[in-house]
Protein backbone atom coordinates (compact mmCIF):
# COMPACT_ATOMS: atom_id res chain seq x y z
CA UNK A 1 0.00 0.00 0.00
CA UNK A 2 3.00 2.27 0.57
CA UNK A 3 3.54 4.87 -2.13
CA UNK A 4 6.86 4.10 -3.80
CA UNK A 5 8.64 7.45 -3.27
CA UNK A 6 7.57 7.93 0.38
CA UNK A 7 10.32 9.37 2.54
CA UNK A 8 10.91 9.25 6.32
CA UNK A 9 12.70 12.28 7.78
CA UNK A 10 14.57 11.86 11.05
CA UNK A 11 15.66 14.75 13.27
CA UNK A 12 17.83 13.68 16.24
CA UNK A 13 20.93 15.34 17.66
CA UNK A 14 22.60 12.02 18.44
CA UNK A 15 24.52 10.59 15.54
CA UNK A 16 24.35 7.01 16.84
CA UNK A 17 20.58 7.20 17.03
CA UNK A 18 20.37 8.72 13.53
CA UNK A 19 22.55 5.95 12.10
CA UNK A 20 20.54 3.23 13.83
CA UNK A 21 17.18 4.65 12.71
CA UNK A 22 18.45 5.04 9.18
CA UNK A 23 19.61 1.42 9.11
CA UNK A 24 16.33 0.12 10.54
CA UNK A 25 14.26 2.02 7.98
CA UNK A 26 16.42 1.08 5.05
CA UNK A 27 16.19 -2.57 6.12
CA UNK A 28 12.44 -2.44 5.45
CA UNK A 29 12.93 -0.54 2.20
CA UNK A 30 12.01 2.93 3.39
CA UNK A 31 13.68 6.00 1.98
CA UNK A 32 15.19 7.94 4.87
CA UNK A 33 16.84 11.31 5.29
CA UNK A 34 18.38 12.37 8.62
CA UNK A 35 19.07 15.77 10.18
CA UNK A 36 20.88 16.75 13.39
CA UNK A 37 18.69 19.75 14.22
CA UNK A 38 15.36 21.40 13.41
CA UNK A 39 16.88 24.27 11.46
CA UNK A 40 18.64 21.83 9.15
CA UNK A 41 15.31 20.15 8.43
CA UNK A 42 13.36 23.37 7.78
CA UNK A 43 16.07 24.55 5.39
CA UNK A 44 15.88 21.31 3.40
CA UNK A 45 13.80 21.49 0.21
CA UNK A 46 11.58 18.45 0.26
CA UNK A 47 10.27 16.67 -2.84
CA UNK A 48 6.52 16.59 -3.20
CA UNK A 49 6.11 12.99 -2.03
CA UNK A 50 4.32 11.37 0.92
CA UNK A 51 6.48 11.75 4.01
CA UNK A 52 6.57 11.66 7.79
CA UNK A 53 8.91 13.05 10.42
CA UNK A 54 10.52 11.09 13.26
CA UNK A 55 11.41 13.86 15.70
CA UNK A 56 13.38 13.86 18.98
CA UNK A 57 11.71 16.05 21.61
CA UNK A 58 14.94 17.37 23.12
CA UNK A 59 17.12 19.05 20.57
CA UNK A 60 19.78 21.73 20.78
CA UNK A 61 18.47 25.11 19.63
CA UNK A 62 14.89 24.65 18.46
CA UNK A 63 13.21 21.88 20.48
CA UNK A 64 11.07 19.17 18.91
CA UNK A 65 7.82 20.65 20.18
CA UNK A 66 8.86 24.09 18.95
CA UNK A 67 9.64 22.67 15.51
CA UNK A 68 6.18 21.06 15.45
CA UNK A 69 4.62 24.47 16.18
CA UNK A 70 6.69 26.18 13.48
CA UNK A 71 5.69 23.57 10.89
CA UNK A 72 1.99 23.92 11.77
CA UNK A 73 2.23 27.70 11.52
CA UNK A 74 3.88 27.42 8.12
CA UNK A 75 0.97 25.23 6.99
CA UNK A 76 3.19 22.17 6.64
CA UNK A 77 1.06 19.30 7.89
CA UNK A 78 3.67 16.52 7.72
CA UNK A 79 2.72 13.76 10.21
CA UNK A 80 5.10 13.71 13.17
CA UNK A 81 6.17 10.75 15.31
CA UNK A 82 7.88 11.96 18.47
CA UNK A 83 10.60 9.94 20.15
CA UNK A 84 12.12 10.87 23.48
CA UNK A 85 14.51 9.45 26.04
CA UNK A 86 12.51 10.88 28.93
CA UNK A 87 9.01 11.62 27.83
CA UNK A 88 6.62 12.63 30.54
CA UNK A 89 2.86 12.50 30.21
CA UNK A 90 2.20 16.28 30.00
CA UNK A 91 4.78 16.54 27.26
CA UNK A 92 3.24 13.73 25.23
CA UNK A 93 -0.25 15.15 25.75
CA UNK A 94 0.94 18.49 24.44
CA UNK A 95 2.52 16.87 21.43
CA UNK A 96 -0.53 14.74 20.66
CA UNK A 97 -2.89 17.74 21.03
CA UNK A 98 -0.73 19.64 18.60
CA UNK A 99 -1.38 16.87 16.11
CA UNK A 100 1.44 14.37 16.62
CA UNK A 101 0.75 10.92 15.16
CA UNK A 102 2.59 8.98 17.85
CA UNK A 103 4.80 9.47 20.89
CA UNK A 104 7.41 6.76 21.52
CA UNK A 105 9.87 6.40 24.41
CA UNK A 106 13.47 5.49 23.67
CA UNK A 107 14.40 2.74 23.35
CA UNK A 108 11.33 1.60 21.40
CA UNK A 109 10.28 -1.65 19.74
CA UNK A 110 11.18 -1.54 16.07
CA UNK A 111 7.70 -2.76 15.09
CA UNK A 112 6.04 0.05 17.08
CA UNK A 113 8.08 2.62 15.24
CA UNK A 114 7.61 0.96 11.82
CA UNK A 115 3.85 0.65 12.42
CA UNK A 116 3.67 4.30 13.38
CA UNK A 117 5.64 5.24 10.27
CA UNK A 118 3.36 3.07 8.08
CA UNK A 119 0.29 4.75 9.57
CA UNK A 120 1.80 8.21 9.21
CA UNK A 121 2.74 7.67 5.58
CA UNK A 122 -0.74 6.35 4.76
CA UNK A 123 -2.21 9.34 6.56
CA UNK A 124 -0.04 11.69 4.55
CA UNK A 125 -0.93 9.89 1.32
CA UNK A 126 -4.68 10.23 2.02
CA UNK A 127 -4.23 13.83 3.02
CA UNK A 128 -2.38 14.44 -0.21
CA UNK A 129 -5.18 12.80 -2.28
CA UNK A 130 -7.81 14.80 -0.40
CA UNK A 131 -5.76 17.89 -0.87
CA UNK A 132 -5.38 17.20 -4.60
CA UNK A 133 -9.15 16.55 -4.94
CA UNK A 134 -10.01 19.76 -3.16
CA UNK A 135 -7.59 21.62 -5.40
CA UNK A 136 -9.27 20.15 -8.57
CA UNK A 137 -12.72 21.09 -7.36
CA UNK A 138 -11.55 24.62 -6.60
CA UNK A 139 -10.03 24.90 -10.10
CA UNK A 140 -13.29 23.74 -11.75
CA UNK A 141 -15.30 26.22 -9.67
CA UNK A 142 -12.93 28.99 -10.82
CA UNK A 143 -14.09 28.32 -14.46
CA UNK A 144 -17.71 29.32 -13.62
CA UNK A 145 -18.86 32.83 -14.56
CA UNK A 146 -20.15 35.14 -11.84
CA UNK A 147 -23.77 34.52 -12.96
CA UNK A 148 -23.20 30.75 -13.02
CA UNK A 149 -21.77 30.86 -9.45
CA UNK A 150 -24.87 32.80 -8.30
CA UNK A 151 -27.13 30.28 -10.03
CA UNK A 152 -25.17 27.38 -8.47
CA UNK A 153 -25.64 28.87 -5.02
CA UNK A 154 -29.43 28.89 -5.60
CA UNK A 155 -29.47 25.37 -7.03
CA UNK A 156 -27.58 23.82 -4.14
CA UNK A 157 -29.93 25.56 -1.71
CA UNK A 158 -32.75 23.57 -3.45
CA UNK A 159 -34.45 26.52 -5.25
CA UNK A 160 -36.70 25.73 -8.22
CA UNK A 161 -35.71 27.21 -11.59
CA UNK A 162 -38.57 29.73 -11.33
CA UNK A 163 -37.48 30.88 -7.89
CA UNK A 164 -33.88 31.18 -9.10
CA UNK A 165 -35.02 33.20 -12.14
CA UNK A 166 -36.98 35.60 -9.89
CA UNK A 167 -34.09 35.92 -7.43
CA UNK A 168 -31.51 36.67 -10.10
CA UNK A 169 -33.92 38.68 -12.28
CA UNK A 170 -33.45 36.46 -15.33
CA UNK A 171 -35.72 34.16 -17.38
CA UNK A 172 -36.28 30.51 -16.52
CA UNK A 173 -34.73 29.55 -19.89
CA UNK A 174 -31.50 31.32 -18.97
CA UNK A 175 -31.49 29.55 -15.61
CA UNK A 176 -31.72 26.18 -17.39
CA UNK A 177 -28.77 27.10 -19.61
CA UNK A 178 -26.72 28.12 -16.58
CA UNK A 179 -27.56 24.84 -14.84
CA UNK A 180 -26.42 22.81 -17.83
CA UNK A 181 -23.14 24.76 -17.98
CA UNK A 182 -22.62 24.42 -14.21
CA UNK A 183 -23.14 20.62 -14.23
CA UNK A 184 -20.74 20.24 -17.16
CA UNK A 185 -18.00 22.55 -15.85
CA UNK A 186 -18.14 21.08 -12.32
CA UNK A 187 -18.32 17.55 -13.74
CA UNK A 188 -21.27 16.85 -11.44
CA UNK A 189 -23.29 13.71 -12.17
CA UNK A 190 -26.36 14.93 -10.28
CA UNK A 191 -27.64 17.81 -8.21
CA UNK A 192 -26.82 15.78 -5.08
CA UNK A 193 -23.23 15.47 -6.36
CA UNK A 194 -23.13 19.23 -6.88
CA UNK A 195 -24.41 19.81 -3.35
CA UNK A 196 -21.52 17.70 -1.94
CA UNK A 197 -19.03 19.69 -4.02
CA UNK A 198 -20.48 22.97 -2.73
CA UNK A 199 -20.10 21.68 0.82
CA UNK A 200 -16.47 20.88 0.17
CA UNK A 201 -15.88 24.31 -1.30
CA UNK A 202 -17.41 25.80 1.82
Amino acid sequence: MRPPAATVFVVDDDESVREALSSLMRSVGLRVKTFSCGAEFTRYEREDVPACLVLDVRLPGVSGLELQRQLTEAGTDIPIIFVTAHGDIPMSVRAMKAGAMEFLSKPFRDQDLLDAIEKALEHDECARIAHAQAAGLRARYETLTLREREAMACVVRGRLNKQTADELGITEITVKVHRRHIMAKMQAKSVADLVRMAEKLG
Binding site: S23, V28, K106, P107
Partner: peptide
Protein backbone atom coordinates in the same frame (compact mmCIF):
# COMPACT_ATOMS: atom_id res chain seq x y z
CA UNK B 1 22.99 6.53 28.82
CA UNK B 2 19.69 6.10 27.03
CA UNK B 3 20.85 7.54 23.73
CA UNK B 4 23.50 4.90 23.05
CA UNK B 5 21.18 2.19 24.43
CA UNK B 6 18.46 3.30 22.03
CA UNK B 7 20.98 3.12 19.24
CA UNK B 8 22.04 -0.37 20.35
CA UNK B 9 18.46 -1.68 20.47
CA UNK B 10 17.52 -0.09 17.16
CA UNK B 11 20.67 -1.35 15.47
CA UNK B 12 19.95 -4.85 16.78
CA UNK B 13 16.44 -4.72 15.37
CA UNK B 14 17.83 -3.49 12.07
CA UNK B 15 20.48 -6.25 12.14
CA UNK B 16 17.78 -8.93 12.45
CA UNK B 17 15.90 -7.43 9.55
CA UNK B 18 19.04 -7.24 7.36
Amino acid sequence: VNQPLTAVVTNAHALLRW
